[in-house]
Structures are given as structure tokens and as C-alpha cells.
Simulated assay, not measured.
Amino acid sequence: MSNSLSRVMAMLRHIPRHPRKIDTNALSRRLERAGYTISIRSIQRDLNDLSCILPLVADNGRPQGWSWQADADPFHLPFLDPQAALTFHLVQRHLSALLPESTLDYLAPWFRTATAVLEANDHGVTRWPDKVRVLPRGLRLRSPPIDPGVHATLYDALLRERQVTIRYLPRQATAPKEYVVHPLGVVARDTVIYLVCTMRNFTDVRQLALHRMRSAIMLDEPCNRPEGFDLDAYIADGAFGYSESGDTIQLEARFTSDAAAHLFEYPLADDQRIVPDGTGAVRVSATVLDTKELRWWLLGFGDQVTVLGPPRLRDRMRDTVAGMAAAYGLMTASVA
């Protein structure tokens, strides 16, 4: 390969996509570090020539900045292969709601190229998107609409670690309220996306649903992150399980064999034990977090599960079942 061609290829790799830019002085320094010695005048001449055949643009700044056009198709050597195109396609289909707007805009040319590659290739991998589906557990609910401006602002603030002023409509409120929040993370749970944050100067961590936000303005002030905060630890502590007591409990329950079948493959906890009780049913014990989600899960089995302990959970389940029976007009016997 000629030295001039390898130098041109090295130079093109350092040119960012608009609105970012790089000037000839910076390009000269980067090329010099890569082992290429060339004058700034020669770099300028190369860029002018290349802009006639490639989607390169220059601004009127001093020094002049160069960029790939914002909507230019990616310049690939080698060309995007079907496996890579499939990856971009799946990212666009399944992760768009979790990516910042700026990232999606940046990836848009790759998405277009990926679609073109998949449509142009008669290859097994190109038909993969028609063969794979991701299904949620339980009843499928529709995702609530999120204001695109709010979505973009919050994700940008999360990237830049900046505070945000939001207008938020709390559940059952009639008018939105204004808050200053410190973004810490984003969690997608089922069909709802939550902003994990602190508010004003408080340190307690909150969850705010994005679809309840009516506006968002990013501020110049940096966000304050609680010392030692870790998003994974926050989730593991049951934050999204809607904690009842915040404690772990020793669950004891009698399951029918059919209801407990999946627990052999997907245990509730590392210390889970399943023991036949001699009646065709099994007794399940495990250390779990005391959450509303646990109770919803147990109630979902109906009469196939009987909670034996701890007493507080058994009493709550008994009261719920009694309330359900009353709602359906049924008489219930007193249960000890």
C-alpha cells in the first residue's frame, strides 16, 4: 500500500460526524503521532479533493473545522457484513427506548446501512429478524407515551451529569408540579421507563415515570450523586419490587406439584428448598425480599399455593383472599 493512501485512510478515521469537527492542526498532530509527516497545507489540499467525492464538509470557523455530513452513510472498509448489520437492526428494534436521542441520531446512518445490507443479501442471517421475538411475562400492557423532548433532555442530562428542572404530574394529581432533579440512572420495567434520581438537596433516591413528565429543562449545574450510590445495588435491594418492609423474610408455602414445577429450573433464591409433603404437593422455603411483587406473584397462583409463613405474610394473604371472597359475594369461614 502506498504511503499516501495509508495516510489518507488514517486521516479519514479521525474526522468526526457533524456537529463535531476537527481542524487541520489537530489532524496534523494525530497523523504525526501515527507516523505520518505532512504539512498542514497538504492536509488542507487533500481534504478539499476528498470533499469532491466523499460527504465531507467544512465550516467557516478559524481554524476551519471538518466533519462527515450528519446524514452521510458510514464509510466502511470492509463494508458492513450481514452479521454486523443484524446487530444494528436488533439494537434499533429493541433498545431504541433506552438510548439517548443524540446516540440514536448518531447511529441513524448505520441503521440505514444495516437495513440496506439485510435487504440486499440473500443470506440466512438476513432473515433472522423474522425468526426471533421477545415476549414479556404476564399480561402485555401498552407503553404509555413519552414526550420526545423530555426523553431527549433527560437522557442528555444523564450523559452530561447535569441537573434538570421538570414539570411532573404525580399519580392522582390534577396539575403538574415543578421539581429540580439529579439524574442517577434509567430503568425500564415492563412497559414503563423510570428516572432514578434525587430531588432538590435531598439524598433519598426516588423513581419518576418518564410518561408523567410534561417538560424538562437541563441546567448548567452538575448533579449531586449520593456517596456510594450504585444502580445495581439499589435494584438488588428491592427498589423496584415495591418494598413492603424493606426486610428479607423466610417464605414457607405449600405448592401443588404443577405450580412448583418451574421453581426447579428458576429458583426463588440460592437457599431455596423444595420438599414433598406426602400429599402430592410440595413445601417450598426460600429467603426473599418482602415486596408487593412477591404477594402479587403468590396471588397469581390462586388456590394452587398456600402461604404457611412468616405469620405476617400469611395474615396479609388471608385478609386479601377474604376481601376477594366478599367482593364476589361469597361467605368465608374464619381462618386461624
Rank of each mutant, 00 (worst) to 15 (best):
H89V: 02
P100V: 01
R93T: 15
D147H: 10
A97T: 06
P145V: 07
S102H: 13
P145H: 06
R140D: 13
S96R: 08
Y155W: 11
A152Y: 09
S143D: 11
A152I: 03
P109M: 03
L99I: 01
K131H: 12
R133A: 14
P129V: 05
G124D: 13
Y106L: 14
T113E: 15
L159M: 09
T115C: 12
G138K: 04
D122I: 06
D130P: 01
E119A: 15
R140W: 02
L95W: 08
L86I: 07
L158E: 01
D122V: 08
R160C: 04
G138Y: 04
L99E: 02
A157R: 06
Y155I: 00
G124I: 03
H123N: 09
L98D: 15
V150E: 06
L159G: 03
V117T: 15
L158A: 00
H151L: 09
T113K: 14
L98W: 05
L139C: 09
A97L: 10
R140E: 13
K131C: 10
R160H: 09
D147R: 07
L90D: 10
D147L: 07
F88A: 08
L104K: 10
I146L: 02
D105C: 11
L158K: 01
W128A: 13
Q92T: 03
A152G: 01
P129L: 07
S143E: 15
L158T: 00
R162Y: 08
P129Q: 02
V150A: 00
L141W: 02
H151K: 11
T113D: 10
P109S: 01
R162E: 12
V150S: 00
D156Q: 13
L86S: 05
R160M: 06
V132A: 05
H151R: 08
A114S: 15
H94S: 03
R142P: 02
D156S: 13
D130L: 12
L118S: 10
